[in-house]
Design a protein around this nucleic acid. Structure first.
Lengths: 212, 212
DNA sequence: TTGATTTTCTAATCTAATTTAGAATAGACT
DNA sequence: AGTCTATTCTAAATTAGATTAGAAAATCAA
């Protein structure tokens, strides 16, 4: 009786701490790993299931479809990244300046994408690869996160910490690009995520040219 | 006798100005348009063919497979972008400084991605979506373009125009991210590609913070 | 242990697209 | 006109993978 048996999984997550919920979690992690590695089209349900010793068909007990799975991954990724940046900002001393806040957000976001957080990284990578309906939903969820960044930039400008000649939307997208593109090119190696994050933040805020 | 008839198309392009070559060209343009709009997995050969009033099967007279088509698109896109930036640099006055050269490259690259150049834009968008073998080939072709950028940055650093504390590889990737991510988010609207290009270049070189 | 329930597996089926084979069409040349 | 060649079309074959139904296995409660 799949129709009924499947019901619990469709119910709002984070319900009972039963086995189903744990499996659901590990499927999400596995899916993120495979999606991150292979991209949307090349990632097969068979691979994702195999990653945790399951068969493709079994995934359907927990998720209604491949699309539902990728959507769930991206929803979690969006939420976690947003939350991580919020936490980092909250941890700042009360009197932290606008640029310090911006710097913190840049570094934290980048570390989410670069470090072992497959879900955050996969989410970034998938945004423009996922089918349109999924993308729309995720982008809608990301609006709040975008608003956070807009606030940071506007705050900095109000404090006179940003040159007045730059368009803030363009600036925001350029920053996001510098951060998110790394989900594609980055491979662990010479530099740590922290070092990279620091350099990118320094470049965004201070520019390439040395200050006189 | 498809095997023989197909031969001319497989021969090095830019041969005879016959009809085949012209059709091949328009297929490339159409493919770029559809790939840019729908992404790699959602773009169907049927759509691409329909774009120029053809049937999917007919594409096989000109390209050996879907993969060969996307690869051809990306190869042209890579070459055109590289060439456009080279031209822009060549047009600079002989004594142009390292930062001016960098600024020019940034603006020209960005305009290629934002403006009506579907092939350049599609190429950027497809790099991380295309199947691994295609991606490898294209990335290999892009090495020369990457070297151009490395040269620009090293030149700027040697001239003392870049802060010595930044890692140049990280810097280069961050710049590429700021530029290339725009292939995904940009929609024609409020600002022209030129205005956007100018702001991004200003931000990269001068930073967000005002100069004292 | 037994029975009920949840979870996973097996073994098709379905689907949607690429790909192919051969027929049709259109031009060019004689 | 008639032939040859290049190009496109039609219609079917192939494929790869998602999806589904029902059988098995595992888990849990009594």
């Amino acid at each position: 009786m799949p129709a009924l048996a499947r019901a619990p999984a469709q119910v709002q997550a984070a319900e009972e701490p039963g086995k189903a919920e744990a499996t659901r979690q590990s499927i999400l992690e596995a899916a993120a790993r495979i999606f991150r590695r292979d991209g949307y089209s090349a990632a097969r349900l068979t691979d994702i299931a195999a990653e945790i010793g399951m068969k493709a068909g079994s995934l359907y007990y927990h998720f209604g479809s491949r699309e539902a799975l990728v959507e769930a991954v991206m929803e979690v990724g969006t939420r976690r990244t947003h939350q991580a940046v919020l936490d980092a900002l909250a941890a700042l001393p009360a009197g932290a300046g606008a640029l310090a806040r911006l710097e913190t957000a840049i570094e934290r976001h980048l570390i989410m994408v670069l470090a072992q957080e497959d879900i955050a990284s996969a989410t970034i990578k998938l945004i423009w690869q996922a089918p349109a309906p999924v993308r729309e939903k995720v982008l809608a969820e990301q609006r709040a996160y975008g608003a956070l960044w807009r606030g940071l930039l506007e705050g900095a400008r109000a404090a006179g910490a940003i040159r007045p000649d730059l368009d803030l939307s363009v600036t925001r997208m350029a920053i996001m690009g510098a951060l998110n593109w790394s989900a594609d090119w980055y491979r662990p190696g010479r530099l740590t995520p922290e070092e990279i994050a620091h350099d990118v933040a320094a470049m965004v805020i201070g520019g390439l040219a040395p200050r006189p």
